[in-house]
Design a binder for these strands. Structure first.
Lengths: 218, 218
DNA sequence: GCCATATTTCAACACTTGTTGAAGTGGGGA
DNA sequence: TCCCCACTTCAACAAGTGTTGAAATATGGC
């Protein structure tokens, strides 16, 4: 294996471009970023981004795709663990919510800052009228459908509309929290910190779990 | 009063620019929009935006400010109504949540499409690491603090961190829902519709109310 | 060492961007 | 009528944009 190759067999400069693009897109959005700034951060020439990824929009998709596959695999594993632990009963709503959230905190991202940028990027995409619908569906729906199936199993004969709107609330709360915009720091006058995701974790789990439980048929 | 003046005494072209800018910023974000496209939609010359509002960024702030003042007034009225109806007891959590949400649905926006664009714009701002913290604080915090005070009154001796993180979840769920990204339409395979805000209303109220109730001390 | 291939750099094009200053328009008061 | 003023248009600049083709360099197999 060449010295120019990281573990995945791709050139180091290629991943350097992905890392720089990820950070920039997360901070400023797709249109707020230019390729020269990305290239500068990555320490490469402008044209190299085009050589490896094609158009700017293709680079954006590549950034989204890279960690989506990893995150989906982690979440699927966590969900299957929750299902098998509870078998033959359905898992609790809280166990499902935790399976959806835990991979965000227990992955390699603790030592890899790229993951935090990625979460902010997902918040940007999720809330964009331009791409929110299409891109989130493309990258995450196959997995999300399985989580909704699990919730349906856990909650019983639940109203379908209520279930989807509840997940929608979950999605909005989650992406904003992990975007780390600094909003809660200002609102709480320093009591809470955006970058304290571990501290936010239990609060989010409780809030969301209660929300889903409220639609359980009596 | 001149024929060139609408009710508020400002030139019609000035508000035409605000309307066009609002729609464009909401759809594509700050950097995804150029002044020539705004001017074209407004039916005016490019330079006119600069004459009325100064720099592009100042126009953006003017768009945010215009409806923020109206929305804050509506919400304050709704909150005061909820407080006085319940007096001498504190209002229920649900009554407070409804006071926060109802103005989004009962205002003049039913006949005025600009409000829907505005909600999408708020979702964009709220989730932006660049501006989320500062701008939301600047335009909405004075009112939001009053809502959090009311929630604290209603919930009793509640954990402060849990209260702020719960509001944070509320904020994320709300802004995403009113951004109408089309996401839920695809996820639910047509069962739910992003633009059916009236239909979403009861589901959001229930989900959020249950979330806040979960932090009530026992 | 040699060659085909992959990677990287360089320089430049064609186009869009925000912003500006000067000129033009129309109405109301002196 | 003339002038002042707010409003609007016109034309243009200077900087920045994504993208490209050709040249240069490095790499790995023979």
């Amino acid at each position: 294996m060449s010295l120019a190759m990281p573990d995945d067999g791709k050139p180091v400069r290629r991943t350097a471009i992905l890392d720089a693009a990820e950070a920039q897109f997360a901070q400023h959005g797709y249109d707020g970023v230019n390729l020269r700034a990305i290239a500068r951060d990555a320490g490469v020439d402008v044209a190299l981004a085009n050589y490896h990824f094609g158009k700017k929009r293709d680079l954006f998709d590549a950034v989204l795709m890279r960690r989506a596959e990893v995150l989906n695999a982690w979440r699927l594993k966590a969900l299957e663990d929750a299902l098998s632990e509870a078998r033959p009963n359905p898992p609790s709503v809280e166990a499902i919510v935790r399976a959806y959230l835990r991979p965000l905190l227990t992955g390699s991202h603790v030592t890899e800052p790229g993951w935090k940028h990625y979460y902010a990027l997902i918040a940007y995409v999720n809330n964009s009228p331009d791409w929110g619908g299409k891109l989130m569906t493309q990258f995450f729906d196959p997995l999300i459908i399985q989580f909704i199936d699990a919730l349906r199993l856990s909650l019983g004969d639940v109203d379908e509309k209520a279930l989807y709107w509840s997940y929608h609330c979950f999605s909005g709360a989650l992406t904003l929290t992990f975007a780390e915009t600094g909003r809660i720091d200002l609102l709480s006058k320093g009591l809470c910190h955006s970058d304290d995701l571990a501290g936010a974790y239990e609060h989010v789990v409780r809030f969301i779990t209660a929300g889903f439980e409220s639609i359980r048929p009596t």
